[in-house]
Design a protein around this nucleic acid. Structure first.
Lengths: 223, 223
DNA sequence: AACTGACCAGAATACCAATCCAGTCATTCG
DNA sequence: CGAATGACTGGATTGGTATTCTGGTCAGTT
């Protein structure tokens, strides 16, 4: 194998397209490299000019899914909306983008996970770092705008990644996560909480303590 | 089978103790019901007076682990410390209690998960509801004290459960979670963020916007 | 030089026999 | 008499073997 493909060569894309279709339809084990090559309309050997193994092809489809997510995150980051709004949408997107991709691949994902767990785990670290970098950038924007506070934007970004990871279809399969709208609403509640926090602001706290204006104590409430 | 055991009969406890030892040492599949009975010092049939199946015994050990967690959570909830401090410790405990239990059972947990996934999933819902109830109570305390804000304490409790679930050894095995102190520090950072939130308080925001006292804008900062 | 598909070794499957073990229940024990 | 037991059974698991399948290679073709 040489794998000297130009990273986004048309042939490489065709292989990944074919893999997406076959993995969704037959799963990882039942998909053979012969099937894959003929579905992509190329010879089997050619596949090995672009990927070093069958596992790398499967992981390649996930790499591409995340690469597309990163593109969408960067697009949101580049918008002119206030940083908190961009950040909110980016966090929601990282959950739903994966959910929507996992939906048709539910069967193959389980297989890939049991077969390529260590390799996928290592990549997840990379994925998370890449996402965290984009999120940290927007947090910095928000701090500059005075709309967000974070002493360590990079660390905060990583923590936000951790917090939203519970809603990702990694080992919790798609069926276990539940219906799309439920995942979405859980993600929204979580993100709301991450933004607002639980602690009552100092001013509110003293008001509530004195029982002066108890109804004001819940003005900036948490849904 | 009748399973008419008084919920915490000495025999039932002995069976669970034996199961804990054998599952940790040999895993789920290699542990036979004969082994279990002789380790517990009873006849095999007796086991079936307390548990309806082998799977129920394994799930029973997890039930007990969570029951002990609930006890510890209630103990913290009953303390006289301020609600935010109690809540913080409860959230950290729900992560670390599970980690410490999963550590010696890493092998058997994987097996139980692949064999009894649906049953365990259903129980997880119950576990989370039980934990959420205790957490919601403390949130209510905090709201009453004016130290926390939450329009819907029960919903907030469930969201806090979701947020910290990413650090639980459910499908992410113990090795994948990393070293104990790393898990602990990640949990602490996450909990800090959940309490403080990302949004700058209104007063701080306006200060930062006007660039009047930029150093004050980060007074209540996020580690 | 880019691509192909026939080829090979090792992995997966199919099959059967032998073994094991979860769960039952007639019997024993206290 | 009810609680406890362990011999018993059938369905599942294992082991051994023959056969097929398929991931990966590379000599040859375009």
């Amino acid at each position: 194998m040489r794998t000297v493909s130009p990273a986004d060569s048309p042939t490489r894309e065709r292989i990944l397209d074919a893999a997406d279709r076959l993995l969704a339809r037959y799963g990882f084990r039942k998909t053979t490299m012969d099937d894959l090559a003929s579905e992509a309309g190329i010879g089997k050997g050619t596949t090995y000019l672009h990927f070093s193994s069958k596992g790398e092809v499967a992981l390649g489809t996930i790499d591409r899914m995340v690469a597309r997510l990163i593109e969408r995150l960067e697009a949101i980051a580049a918008e002119s909306a206030p940083a908190p709004e961009r950040l909110r949408r980016m966090l929601l997107l990282r959950v739903m983008h994966r959910f929507d991709h996992a939906q048709p691949h539910s069967q193959s994902l389980d297989e890939v996970l049991t077969t390529l767990r260590p390799a996928l785990l290592a990549r997840r670290e990379r994925y998370f770092r890449d996402e965290a970098a984009r999120i940290a950038q927007v947090i910095r924007d928000g701090v500059r705008e005075g709309r967000l506070r974070a002493a360590d934007p990079a660390g905060a970004a990583h923590t936000l990644i951790t917090a939203t990871n519970a809603l990702l279809p990694y080992s919790l399969s798609v069926e276990e996560l539940g219906r799309r709208r439920d995942v979405e609403s859980r993600a929204e509640r979580l993100i709301d909480l991450l933004f607002a926090g639980l602690c009552a602001p100092a001013s509110t706290r003293s008001q509530a303590r004195s029982f002066a204006k108890p109804h004001l104590a819940q003005r900036r409430i948490l849904k």
